[in-house]
Amino acid sequence: MEATTEDRWQKVVYDTLKKNGVTIFSYVPDAGHRMAIDLSLADPDVHSVALTTEEEGVALAAGAHLGGAKSALLMQSSGLGNCINFFSMITGGKFPFLTILSMRGDYGEGNPWQMGMGKAVRPILDAMGFVTVEITQKDEVERAIDAACTMAFQSGEAVAVLLTQKLIGAKKF
């Protein structure tokens, strides 16, 4: 998988998750996760799980934890709204949980349909008891994903990493 200069940070996301022991990658596709999805599909050492809806990835992570495996859910921020009820299982049962959100409806968004969920992301994460880690710079990616993995898999927290539009750029309309 050849990484261009623009998306080399996407490879860092994948490599850092893998370095931290993640073996189950689940996702609903988004451009911000293109590289991680392709790398997981090509990697014989991990499971790459295409979801029909993001909430499946929440329950999948809980099941993986019961079986002793670490999982990461990759999604666009709009998918966060699909997950809310299942987050109650994560926080109620104190399951370690890690999700990486590529933001829409954020800095520089040009599609008004994205703004409603974009503005709701942080209040939803706060309401559901998540630790939130924001990434705005490419050179922060490895350290931030490391920190998120530690809080999720060692401290047992529900952690969301936001790949902000300052990092990934806003889609042009």
């Binding site: 909430e55 999948l60 019961l66 999982s71 109650s88």
Partner: peptide
């Protein structure tokens, strides 16, 4: 499960992949 209606099958899938 005592809640999270609709979660059982995807939870079982995660467990099956891990074990």
């Amino acid at each position: 499960l005592g809640g999270a209606m609709g979660a059982a099958l995807s939870m079982g899938l995660g467990l099956a992949l891990a074990q």
